[in-house]
């Protein structure tokens, strides 16, 4: 497989605070100052009321599995199968993509409760999910 570097988020002027918080092991979402809606993906404008004003609200880090895939065919040198990527519906509403950290063979069920843990990488700390006890 070709020599391709590991992907990492490249923060921009819109998303920098989102990623900076993750380097401090905090998951944050934008909250509209005008209508109160949580917006994700990160962006400059509230799609609901078109206000630019927002604050950053910290997530509880808890959610439930909304969907998932277990990757079994390697397509990138940085990601060696098998691994499971979850789409988790967070308590605050947004659905977040991150890998499941669990022993291989752990059964994954839609609706199962999970919580965020953190893994530090060279360029950026990233969330992973663990199943609740």
């Amino acid at each position: 497989m070709a020599d391709i570097p590991t992907p990492f988020p490249q923060p921009d002027r819109d998303t920098a605070k989102f990623w900076e918080a993750q380097n401090e092991h905090r998951l944050v979402f934008q909250k509209c100052s005008q209508c109160g809606s949580i917006r994700y993906l990160v962006g400059p404008l509230c799609p609901e009321c078109h206000s630019f004003e927002h604050e950053w609200a910290e997530s509880s880090g808890r959610g439930t599995i909304y969907s998932f895939t277990t990757v079994r065919h390697q397509t990138h040198p940085a990601f060696v199968p098998p691994y499971t990527v979850l789409l988790v519906e967070m308590e605050e509403g947004p659905r977040l993509v991150a890998q499941l950290r669990a022993p291989e063979g752990t059964e994954v069920v839609i609706g199962a409760a999970v919580h965020v843990e953190w893994e530090d990488h060279e360029k950026q700390s990233l969330p992973v999910f663990e199943l609740d006890e």
């Binding site: 990492f8 490249q10 397509t75 990138h76 950026q124």
Partner: peptide, 27 residues
């Protein structure tokens, strides 16, 4: 298209998915 050929700093929508290993249309 079924093999990911990009790495390093991910911008736009890719920043939310590629770093987590969700890198191809099939995935």
């Amino acid at each position: 298209f079924g093999v990911s050929t990009i790495g390093g700093g991910m911008t736009h929508w890719r920043q939310y998915y590629m770093p987590h290993g969700l890198v191809t249309p099939a995935q």
